[in-house]
């Protein structure tokens, strides 16, 4: 079995590991780094529960092998409330009731973050498109879309403070 020396940044921290190169990024995050906020829902890119941010882009961590993240920066849900204070996305989702079972929530919040990084004031259609790779079976999405809108306004008022 081959070995791969993986170096990447995860939530701002440099990581160096020797891994089996057949591991998906998801496996390394969950099983080795114990960052279990990233979920597996389908293992084939249909549900988006495993979404993470890779160099400012949203990816399904079940669809890429960990070595593909070599030299890159990964942000997981655990990387958001670093100082113990919830960030605008997390606050907004809580406030509006966009969280039910919570299993899709980390992926949804990361999708929202990527969207707002590129587009601070998105329309409802743009929000719907940005979360179109993330399935939720509880909410019917209306509250999630609302949550992203609220996050956008919280972010606006906090401009400069937000890490995003």
């Amino acid at each position: 079995m081959a070995q791969f020396h993986l170096e990447m940044k995860v939530n701002g921290k440099a990581i160096a590991l020797d891994i089996d190169p057949g591991l998906r990024l998801l496996d390394v995050l969950r099983d080795i780094l114990h960052l279990t906020g990233t979920k597996e829902g389908c293992g084939e890119g249909e549900c988006g529960a495993c979404s993470v941010i890779l160099d400012d882009e949203l990816v399904d961590s079940c669809l890429i092998l960990a070595p593909q993240a070599y030299g890159r920066e990964v942000i997981t849900i655990e990387g958001l409330a670093l100082n113990g204070e919830l960030d605008p996305y997390q606050q907004a989702f809580l406030e509006v009731g966009a969280v039910q079972c919570g299993y899709c929530t980390p992926g949804m919040i990361l999708a929202a973050r990527v969207l707002l990084n590129h587009k601070p004031k998105p329309s409802q259609q743009e929000i719907a498109r940005a979360i179109s790779g993330n399935l939720c079976r509880c909410t019917g999405y209306a509250k999630i879309v609302q949550g992203v809108e609220i996050a956008a306004s919280i972010k606006e008022t906090k401009e400069g403070v937000s890490r995003a």
């Binding site: 890119g45 949203l58 399904d60 990527v114 940005a130 790779g133 993330n134």
Partner: peptide
Amino acid sequence: VGSPQIRTT
């Protein structure tokens, strides 16, 4: 194609 995640990858 696919979803935002699939399109970035």
